[in-house]
Write a protein that binds this DNA or RNA. Structure first.
Length: 577
RNA sequence: GCGCUUGUAGCUCAAUUGGAUAGAGCGCCUGACUUCGGAUCAGGAGGUUGAGGGUUCAAGUCCUUCCGGGCGCACCA
């Protein structure tokens, strides 16, 4: 039940009818007409800008139109207790108390549906996120995109869409060869006491490779590790297997489960790259040519080459992009185009990629490729998660691959906990950089907004515990003829905004809105709770140690929304803390 | 040099897809613990939304020109 939508429809219908009767003029589109939440200082529940939108086409001052329209809106609507017009031309509507009773009744009866956006047509989505190279454990930098991708998926699932969470494994190319070599040297180090060539910049120096090497040795007693060439294929497979095992463990402790792991090697081996390039060639999106060196950069080591190029400039990219290397092997981009073609063949309505900020420059070419292949614009939506700026002991902390200078997901979750990690990663819009003060979060974890929201849920639980009930038990209420105070209605109004929060989070793919909302709801609840100190009427538990029905309904509505929200962001809502 | 992105209170961030007098937390100042769980609450101070111009009934939000951060810019993936 979204009261904003209900009134938006009512008002648009009214306006259309007036237009049919030639009483007013309307513009081509009524999309500009909104029903919104007014600022708190106004004593009303919802407001609409309809008069301002219609003012121009009717050549009338918005205030006059507003007066005229407000009377018509109020007429025949028994839910409205008062309606008035404010300065530029807003129409402010206040509901009577029975409206809020009915609202609560409805959301308690349909608690699982509350917040679900039903006007949107259900779609199938593929959300690709994390997709970190399988050459090492996940570090803090991967963490944000991981959580954002997971929660975006959860929001879409909450809205009853079908979602596949996918991880693309880049198990092909030079990095993997170097990675395998590194494992090989670690194995030699363990078995033959040969020193690891740590001065070779192509190799991966991290300690985790020692564990990988040990595991491979103990699990593959038959293999002889004395000639790299002979075993490189097998060792590559084993190394990636180990590495993925580690990554999956990292994801698991973050509370993330992908539905599918797609392999780049599979895409290449199945000849999907060649076939997608044939398809693009047929449609004249591919040609042989040269790319210009970027302006303003040192061009001395620039080698002009004729290469197979994709016409991404047709779709607004600044240059065409190489598909084939000079040794005729495919570029990363080429296999990624094939991978996206593979996604397209699986017939999803919408593809979503969550990328790190360092890959933002890649978006144009890959969306271009998807557009070329599918003929649809915005079939692929890329969402960037900006960098996490790590701060340790008050100073910016640069991670390097040098031993020790590395904070993994595992370290982070061990120190801070899964829930706090997720909450903090979501607490700011993904478009902006996030300061993550490692020391501060560790020391002062109680200042974390997570606990503020959880505490709200725990308090509600404690009330139920006091009357020997469980917070998630179903409640039976005979009638909903209550009279809530203004303090209580403040909370109810916040609850009524939950569907709107979900709608925005989902349409803009902005999961931070959920944490922000939960914080606000918790805040309203805590305020109300503290009123009970001075005024016993405002306490949930009365003198006879009972909780009245109206209070139970209110508590239940708040806890339901908090639980829903916490489930979406993948954070626990404990009954005791 | 080009592209993307960002600039809001001392600090960290919100701002309902263009709405009304821009809101929270931290920090600072004042107050509420024989508590329905103080991991909480009430109040105060703190702003030319980086700067200028434009569009609009209405701009933190859109366009434009500057200024300052961040990221990226041939066969690395």
């Amino acid at each position: 039940m979204n009261i904003f939508d209900i009134y938006s429809e009512k008002i648009k219908t009214l306006v259309k009818n007036l237009n049919k009767q030639n009483l007013i003029e309307i513009p081509d589109s009524l999309n500009g007409i909104n029903v919104d939440l007014p600022p708190e200082k106004f004593d009303c529940d919802i407001s609409t800008n309809v008069a301002m939108v219609l003012s121009k086409s009717n050549k009338k001052p918005p205030i006059d139109l507003a007066k005229q329209l407000s009377e018509l809106i109020k007429k025949n609507d028994k839910d409205i207790s008062s309606i008035d017009v404010a300065k530029p031309g807003f129409i402010n509507i206040k509901f009577n108390k029975s409206f809020w009773n009915n609202f609560l009744k409805e959301i308690i009866i349909n608690q699982k549906e509350f917040g679900v956006n039903k006007k949107q047509k259900k779609k199938t989505y593929l959300v690709e996120f994390v997709s970190a190279n399988p050459t090492g454990p996940l570090h803090v930098g991967h963490c944000r995109g991981a959580v954002i991708g997971d929660v975006i998926s959860n929001i879409l699932i909450f809205n009853q869409n079908k979602v596949i969470k996918e991880y693309y494994v880049n198990d092909y190319g030079n990095q993997i060869i170097n990675f395998t070599k590194s494992v090989y040297f670690r194995i030699r180090e363990i078995l033959n006491n040969e020193k690891f060539p740590s001065d070779n910049p192509d190799l991966y120096p991290g300690d985790y490779l020692i564990d990988i090497a040990k595991n491979i040795i103990s699990q593959n007693k038959k293999i002889k590790f004395d000639n790299f060439k002979n075993i490189s294929n097998e060792l590559t497979k084993l190394s990636i297997e180990q590495s993925l095992k580690m990554i999956k463990l990292n994801l698991k402790i973050l509370g993330i489960n992908h539905d599918n792991f797609a392999s780049e090697t599979d895409i290449v081996n199945n000849n999907e790259v060649q076939s997608v390039i044939d398809q693009l060639e047929k449609d004249k999106f591919v040609y042989k040519g040269k790319i210009n060196a970027p302006e303003g950069e040192d061009k001395t080591d620039w080698i002009e080459r004729e290469q197979l190029l994709f016409r991404s400039t047709d779709f607004g990219d600044d240059k065409d992009r190489a598909l084939q290397k000079s040794d005729k092997s495919w570029t990363y981009f080429a296999s990624d185009v094939a991978y996206h073609n593979n996604k397209l063949k699986r017939k999803f309505d919408i593809l979503i990629n969550i990328l790190g900020a360092d890959h933002a420059g890649y978006i144009k070419r890959i969306t271009s490729a998807v557009e070329a292949l599918s003929g649809e614009k915005n079939k692929l939506i890329c969402k960037v998660s900006q960098l996490v700026k790590l701060i340790k002991d008050g100073k910016p902390f640069k991670m390097s691959k040098r031993k020790g200078d590395y904070i993994t997901v595992h370290d982070l979750v061990n120190e801070v906990g899964k829930d706090a990690t997720r909450f903090i990663m979501l607490n700011r819009s993904g478009d902006a950089e996030l300061d993550f003060d490692f020391t501060k979060v560790k020391e002062k974890s109680r200042d974390n907004p997570l606990y503020y929201v959880q505490y709200c849920y725990a308090r509600i639980s404690s009330v139920f515990r006091n009357i020997n009930k469980k917070i998630n038990e179903e409640i039976k209420i005979k009638n909903y003829d209550f009279s809530y105070s203004n303090d209580e209605i403040k909370i109810i109004k916040k609850i009524s905004q939950w569907p709107k929060c979900i709608e925005l989070s989902s349409s803009k793919l902005e999961p931070h809105r959920v944490t922000v909302y939960l914080y606000e709801l918790a805040s309203d609840f805590h305020s109300y709770w503290n009123l009970g100190k001075d005024n016993e009427d405002k306490r949930f538990i009365d003198k006879d140690n009972k909780v009245s029905d109206n209070k139970i309904v209110l508590l239940k509505s708040v806890s339901n929304v908090i639980k829903s929200g916490m489930d979406i962001i993948g954070v626990d809502a404990p009954e005791k803390m």
